[in-house]
Amino acid sequence: MFILRFLARRLGQGAIIIFLVSALIFTLLRVVPGDPVRLMVGGMAPDTLVEEIAAEMGLRDPIHVQFGRYMGKVLQGDLGESFVRPASGAAVGGASFDDSTRGERAKVLDLIAETAPMTLQLAVLAMVFALMIGVPIGVWGGLYPGRLPDRLALYTSSLFVSLPNFWLGIVLALLLSVKLNLLPAIGYRGFSYTILPALVLAVEIAPFIIRTLTVSVAGVMGQSFIDIAKVRGLSRNQIVFRHALKNSAVPLLNLLGVQFSMLLGGVLVIEFIFDYPGLGLLTINAVMQRDFPLIQGIAIVTAAVFVLINIAVDLLATAIDPRLDY
């Protein structure tokens, strides 16, 4: 019963957030300069044609009218069609205005559904790498606060946050792909193409894991139930892995919820460098081409995922630690 009420409340709040995000992006896109119709029809088209097409598409109506129409469709699950991308997935933009081969335009929802699994694959692998790097360093640092492992954790995390993802991507591609020929880097033709981008993304996430774990493990280890566990005769490993780690898992989960948007920002840049065909590359291209419906669609989907992840994180946190309240 409590769970149902919790879910209803959070989903309601989430709906408001998503609505605000859509309104924000929608207004923003229409207020800033840059006419998408001009890009669609190409530079050669006469101004009258631009106006005609814009009026036909409803782009000259007042913003709130356009927004109402858009949200009406979104509620029915229709995120609209891309301005520039054809459904066949062939050439992107640049065609002249009277090109008859330009047929159906791609559905925004389809475009997102196609690329999202790729990004998910990248994100999950990156998260696994990040945990592999971050957990040992973080826990070790937390067990010896103020001593060498703790310093080491501080130094590694300071160094890792200081590595700009695009630069690290280039350097790693140069070393691992060009010089040593170990991993493929550019494009996507199989799972091995995910490893290098995921590694770069992991280096970006790891410092947050290290920092959170160092603080929370140190905090848990100072509490009386750990001392009692020693008296109960538990071995050090049992104490660390069964008690300390379990209690440190909650802040780690919360971190995931809060840092989700940062993670996505990293994905964006990394996919761009490695030409990895995921949601991030789609976003960058959409922005470059002023593909309003696609940008809006991505923003709405992202906000929805953000809301859902945060609800899931809170539910999981209460499952791990029953002391927490909904």
Binding site: Q13, I16, I17, I18, L20, V21, L24, I25, L28, L29, V32, P33, G34, S261, M262, L264, G265, L268, V269, T283, I284, V287, M288, R290, I295, I298, A299, T302, A303, F306, V307
Partner: peptide
């Protein structure tokens, strides 16, 4: 605070490249 939440849920970089990309 709802405004804050809304802004937190759009990745900052999407917002930034959207604005700077078109202006």
């Amino acid at each position: 605070m709802r405004l804050t939440d809304a802004q937190l849920s759009v990745p900052m970089i999407i917002l930034a490249i959207t604005i700077l990309g078109v202006s």
